[in-house]
Design a protein around this nucleic acid. Structure first.
Length: 837
DNA sequence: CTGGTTACTTAGCACACTCTGA
DNA sequence: TCAGAGTGTGCTAAGTAACCAG
């Protein structure tokens, strides 16, 4: 098998020759690495000053802006398209360097670790965590804080003399309630939103962002909380499953799982064969365990209808709850939130995020997840580790139970933790997004991305150079960096066979790209959450050549494109370019950068609506860049055709006016050539349908009006109109309909008979404007149907850009940030209106 | 290295809730 | 006034990336 040694040796000797290149119009450089940037200019224009040609510049979105990008599409099954292309115009000469060995080394998927989830002995290990860094409980070199032993502040202040000590002092003060300047009364109205005064108005906020930062070191000094909340026990309903037509009464534990499935019958999951199979496997195992000999053999013989009916009744009941009941339920919920929803961190009350232990259920893996449908078991307190301050009271576990473990690790931010049985992964209870801990790391994230702004030029010119490196590993790395930078691809860690087959940059396989000369790349692969990434775009010529080289024989579809690259090696390299730089920073950087750039186009004297439109446009551009998608809503097609119809109706109106005008003033045609233009889509058959539909509408209208009028007359004690009056009107409409059907009907232009040409023209122009509006709406709606704006707003766009924009353009913040978002971003509220990313 | 852990961020979906326009 | 579209939030799956032992 060649062995690692061989591969290792390769790494250093390997030359990315590619000599041949058959069509030598673009020979890859050999020895001499030329520095000049190709005309396709990956880099400069963009950050330098932008003013430059906007033609092709480096803005990743340049391409996206136009219609070039392909419609994103969801696809459940991978397929791999079978293309593979192989392209490599013959010869392939490819020289001495047998990629095959490399391929052998990396391409073999690691023999999957026996699914950790299968055996749940893992639970026993819960809570035994590797001693990371220096757990603050025993700081090696901590100076004794002179604040007194019981004030646990400043545990390891020694590490970072000045800053840390200062921060620690701050923390200590805060704790004592001295709250010197750290706590500042919320000042001048940032915008209306910053002072939601729902309740906690009096308590001064802790403005951590005004403190000196203290990146590493302990995350907290004291921590108190109430633990986690467990889901309610299962209450059996006693309704049997129907098996081969016979009722099958179940043990409660079995019944519970059957009920999980019943809830999913006729949903996408419930219809998925893998889901069914996995569910059924676990279901049968449970039957075996609890019900001795039972008849359950085949999934297809199970009928869940009765249970399903019961569930439907239940949910109907829930919906029909009285106001009081609903109120009571809400109160109960609030009481729970009040208790578990908060913790005390360094003396301050902070919101806890997901304090509810995940209830049991059927695992809903996304995409083609091999384990989808398996039973996610109920979590017991014995499996839960509680992380809490040393001095704090350990919360009581549920009666009759014990906690799995108690730790006091202040190097981490989680309050509780447990192992989940499907993939053996760890679930954590963290503070809420609006907490100081989360806020701090959020802010750090954006600051890091911002520091990339300063060195991106250098990084780009460097990887551009390295695109021609003779060392294959370096060339691959440079190419990957290009893709990550330009197209905001994710890093692409390796994945196991027991997960859905999704990829990111480093894990791209040959079948995921198609190359078209001279420099077109078609990406088509499933990314995170099995969301399809489909994009056809131009790339730098050298990148294109590299991709062709990486794809070349002996590689075949299924082989790694970047066989000499891992996310770890990539990130290691990135660290050398800028401290803290990793692949994902590029995503944050590009998203925020593009957003910031796009907002420059906001119409300064536009209406609020126009400004918000510009904002959302910028937002959408980022979402497209990051490929953030959402499912197209059910009614979308219908809504769309409604808009289309409305559009045609207005066009039809305009057509009538135009015809009318040209009739009474034929000379206008010269002055206004647009008057002679046809209205697209307004065909004879459409007009007919439209007019007939109008008849129906008119009938309804007439009837309603008649009834209403009579109602009024009655009230006024006046004689009502006779039914025959309505009949007359309806008969008229009937007449009209008949003539439409016969084709003898002549529509009246929607204008007064003796209207002047100017008046008619004015009307036409108004309609034109309306048409433009509807069209914009339509395009917006269409673009939005599958694009999710929220993800980028929450995770990628520096909130300070948005807040500064609001201040600058006088738009109330709540127009763009929901309440939770405003809470999450309190740290950014004080930003200057001229802030640039 | 490599594989396994651990901790934390990012992601889309379901569903409750709110708004809006006939 | 009420249905149906649009929003907001909670939930939890699925990523990234660092660290550690062997």
């Amino acid at each position: 098998m060649g062995g690692p040694c061989q591969a290792f040796a390769k790494d250093h000797t390997e030359v990315a020759t590619s000599t041949s290149d058959s069509d030598d119009e673009m020979p890859l450089s050999t020895r001499v690495v030329s520095v000049k940037t190709e005309k396709n200019g990956v880099v400069p224009s963009r950050y330098a000053d932008d003013s430059g040609s906007d033609s092709d510049d480096g803005v990743p979105l340049a391409k996206l802006k136009g219609k070039v990008y392909a419609k994103p599409n969801r696809c459940a099954s991978n397929s791999g398209s079978g293309s593979g292309s192989g392209s490599g115009s013959d010869s392939g000469s490819e020289s001495d360097q047998p990629l095959s060995t490399i391929k052998a080394a990396r391409n073999v998927k690691a023999p999957k670790k026996e699914a950790a989830g299968a055996s749940n002995g893992s639970a026993a290990k819960a809570g035994v965590k590797r001693p990371k860094k220096e757990p603050a409980s025993a700081p090696k070199d901590a100076k004794k804080p002179k604040v007194s032993a019981k004030d646990k502040g400043a545990t390891s202040a020694a590490k970072k003399p000045a800053a840390t000590a200062a921060a620690a002092k701050g923390a200590a003060k805060a704790k004592n309630g001295t709250k010197s300047k750290i706590v500042v009364k919320s000042e001048s109205n940032v915008t209306a939103a910053s002072q939601d005064d729902n309740g906690d108005s009096d308590s001064e906020e802790y403005k951590w962002w005004l403190e000196e930062k203290n990146d590493d070191g302990p995350k907290w000094t004291t921590l108190e909380h109430f633990g986690v909340m467990f889901p309610p026990e299962y209450v059996p309903h006693g309704i049997p499953l129907t098996y081969k037509g016979k009722p099958f009464k179940m043990h409660p534990a079995v019944e519970e799982v059957a009920t999980f499935f019943a809830a999913l019958v006729d949903t996408e999951h419930g219809n998925n064969p893998v889901f069914q199979q996995n569910f059924f496997m676990d279901f049968r195992a449970l039957c075996n365990k609890h019900m001795g000999n039972h008849p359950i053999e085949e999934f297809k013989d199970c009928n869940f209808d009765k249970i399903r009916a019961h569930l439907d009744v239940q949910s109907a009941k829930r919906k029909a709850m009285t106001k009081e009941d609903k109120e009571a339920a809400k109160k109960e919920r609030l009481a729970i939130d009040e208790k578990y929803g908060f913790c005390t961190l360094d003396g301050r009350r902070e919101k806890v995020g997901n304090f509810r232990i995940e209830p049991p259920g059927l695992f809903r893996g996304r995409g083609a997840h091999p384990k989808t449908g398996r039973l996610k078991k109920r979590v017991l307190p014995e499996q839960v580790t509680i992380n809490i301050g040393k001095e704090a009271k350990v919360p009581d576990p549920p009666a009759g139970h014990k906690w799995g473990n108690i730790t006091h690790d202040n190097t981490v931010t989680w309050l509780a933790m447990w192992k989940e049985n499907i993939n053996g992964s760890t679930k954590y209870v963290y503070l809420a997004a609006g907490s100081s801990l989360k806020g701090q790391s959020d802010m750090r994230k954006y600051e890091k991305a911002r520091s990339l702004v300063k060195c991106i030029d250098k990084i780009r010119s460097e990887y551009t150079k390295e695109l021609k490196s003779e060392v294959m590993a370096v060339r691959q790395r440079a190419t990957a960096m290009y893709l990550i930078d330009r197209f905001a691809l994710r890093a692409g860690n390796e994945k196991g066979d027991d997960e859905a087959d999704t990829v990111g940059c480093c894990s791209l396989r040959c079948e995921h790209i198609d190359l078209e000369p001279p420099n077109i790349v078609k990406f088509d692969f499933l990314g995170k959450d099995s969301i399809r990434y489909e994009r056809t775009t131009e790339v730098d010529k050298q990148v294109w050549k590299n991709l062709r080289l990486f794809q070349k024989e002996p590689k075949t579809p299924g082989d790694m494109l970047f066989d000499r690259l891992t996310t770890a090696s990539l990130n290691k390299h990135l660290q050398t370019l800028m401290p803290g730089l990793t692949a994902k920073v590029f995503r944050t950087y590009n998203a925020s950068y593009v957003f910031d750039q796009q907002l420059v186009d906001t119409p300064a004297d536009g209406t609020e609506a126009e400004k918000i439109l510009a904002y959302n446009r910028a937002n959408r551009m980022v979402a497209v860049l990051c490929n953030h998608q959402r499912a197209v809503s059910k009614g979308f097609e219908g809504q769309m055709s409604k808009i289309e119809d409305k559009l045609l109706a207005v066009r039809y109106q305009r057509m009538l006016l135009k015809n009318h005008l040209l009739e009474i003033a034929p000379t206008m045609k010269k002055k206004r050539p647009d008057l002679g233009k046809k209205e697209p889509g307004v065909t004879a058959s459409w007009i007919k349908k439209h007019l007939i539909a109008n008849c129906e509408i008119d009938r309804e209208k007439a009837t309603k009006k008649f009834e209403r009028d009579n109602e009024k007359l009655k009230e006024a004690r006046e004689p009502v109109m006779p039914k025959s009056k309505l009949k007359e009107i309806l008969a008229e409409i009937d007449e009209r309909e008949k003539s439409i059907k016969k084709g003898t009907y002549v529509a009246e232009p929607p204008v007064a008979k003796n209207a002047l040409t100017e008046k008619i023209l004015e009307k036409i122009d108004k309609l034109t404007e309306r048409i433009a509006n509807i069209e914009v709406n339509k395009i917006e709606k269409d673009e939005n149907k599958s694009t999710a704006l929220s993800t980028s707003k929450i995770n990628y766009i520096d909130p300070r850009i948005s807040i500064a924009w609001c201040k600058k353009h006088n738009v109330p913040l709540e127009k763009i940030f929901t309440k939770t978002l405003r809470e999450k971003f309190t740290w950014a509220m004080d930003v200057d209106k001229d802030y640039r990313f």
